[in-house]
C-alpha cells in the first residue's frame, strides 16, 4: 500500500529526514517510535503533504501512484488520513460542517453518492458513540476551546467517519489520561481491518499496550535505525533510545527490510 524509499526532507533549510525506508501493507499496524526531534512528526506531515517541508530526495508510492505528486486534499480523498499531533482550531467553522464537507469530498472521489443530511447525521451519531463524544460537540467550532483529550478524540471521530485506507496517528496518545487513551485506542482498534493500514507515531510504548502493532520501527536522526516486532517496543521501554543512536548507519537498511518483509 505504502512504499517509502530513501525519503529526505528539510524545513527552513534544516535537514530532518535523511533517507527513510518503510513499507506498509494492507492490514498491518506499524508503530514508529523514536526520541524527540528524531523526525517522527515530520514524516507524518510529509506523508500528508504539508507544504512547509521540502522533500529533497526519495520516493513515496501509495497504492501504485506517486504520493508526493498529490495535493494534500487529493491524498485525503485517496484515503490517507493524518490524525494531527496538534489538531488545529478553526473558529467559526462548525465540526459538523467540516465532517460533512470532508466525507462528501471523499465519497465523490470514490464515485459514491453524497449523503443527505439525515443519512449523514445517522452515520455520525453512530461514530460519536465510538469515541464517547456528545452530539453537541458537532455544533461547536472545529477544536476551538476543546481540551487536549477532546481534540484527540475529535481526530479519531473524523477518522471513523472518513474510513481511510491508511491512517497515520501522530502522537495521538500524548496528553491523554488513561480513560481517554482507552477510548482512543478502542476507536482505532475498531477500524483495524484487512484492507486498511495504520501507522502510529509515538514516543511511549504505553499506547502499544492498547493498540498492538505488527511492526515497530525506531526513527533516529532522520533514519529508521531498527525495526522489529512488538517486543522491540518493550525493549525500548526498558533501555531507552540511547543504545540505538550510535549505530544509526548500518542498521537503517536491514531495519527497513525487516519492517517490510516478515
Amino acid at each position: 500500500m505504502l512504499k517509502v524509499t530513501n525519503l529526505q526532507a528539510k524545513i527552513d533549510g534544516k535537514e530532518i529526514l535523511r533517507g527513510v525506508d518503510l513499507e506498509v501493507r494492507a492490514g498491518e499496524v506499524h508503530a514508529i517510535m523514536g526520541p524527540n526531534g528524531s523526525g517522527k512528526s515530520t514524516l507524518a506531515q510529509v506523508l500528508a503533504g504539508r507544504e512547509n517541508y521540502e522533500v529533497t530526495g526519495g520516493t513515496v508510492e501509495y497504492d501504485g501512484s506517486d504520493l508526493l505528486e498529490l495535493a494534500p486534499e487529493e491524498r485525503a480523498r485517496a484515503g490517507l488520513f493524518l490524525a494531527f499531533q496538534y489538531p488545529v482550531e478553526i473558529p467559526g467553522v462548525s465540526n459538523v460542517y467540516l465532517l460533512k464537507a470532508a466525507l462528501n469530498a471523499v465519497r465523490k472521489h470514490r464515485g459514491e453518492p453524497e449523503l443527505d443530511a439525515m443519512d449523514f447525521l445517522t452515520l455520525v451519531k453512530d461514530k460519536l458513540k465510538l469515541v464517547e463524544i456528545s452530539q453537541e460537540f458537532l455544533y461547536r467550532a472545529v477544536n476551538e476551546g476543546f481540551s487536549g483529550g477532546e481534540k484527540k478524540r475529535n481526530e479519531i471521530l473524523q477518522m471513523a467517519v472518513l474510513e481511510p485506507r491508511l491512517a497515520i496517528l501522530d502522537e495521538t496518545d500524548s496528553g491523554l489520561d488513561i480513560d481517554a487513551l482507552k477510548i482512543v485506542a478502542n476507536g482505532v482498534n475498531s477500524l483495524r481491518s484487512p484492507d486498511r493500514a495504520i501507522i502510529m507515531v509515538t514516543h511511549y510504548q504505553r499506547l502499544l499496550d492498547y493498540i498492538v502493532p505488527d511492526f515497530v520501527h525506531v526513527l533516529s536522526d532522520g533514519r529508521i535505525v531498527k525495526s522489529g516486532g512488538r517486543e522491540l517496543a518493550l525493549e525500548l521501554e526498558e533501555r531507552g533510545y540511547s543504545w540505538l543512536e550510535g549505530d544509526a548507519q548500518p542498521a537503517a537498511q536491514s531495519g527497513a527490510r525487516a519492517g517490510a518483509g516478515s
Binding site: A48, G49, R50, E51, N52, A71, P72, E73, R75, A76, R77, F81, L82, F84, P87, V88, I90, P91, G92, V93, Y97, L98, A101, A102, A105, V106, H109, A141, V142, Q158, L162
Partner: peptide, 29 residues
C-alpha cells in the same frame, strides 16, 4: 492561516473551498 488551510485540505477540501470556508468563517463571526 496556513495551518488551518492544511488541516482542511488534509480532510479532503480543495484549496479554493478551504479558503472560501475560512474567509466565510472570519466574516461570519
Amino acid at each position: 492561516d496556513d495551518a488551518m488551510l492544511f488541516y482542511l485540505r488534509s480532510r479532503g477540501l480543495d484549496e479554493a473551498a478551504a479558503r472560501s470556508l475560512l474567509i466565510y468563517a472570519f466574516a461570519h463571526d
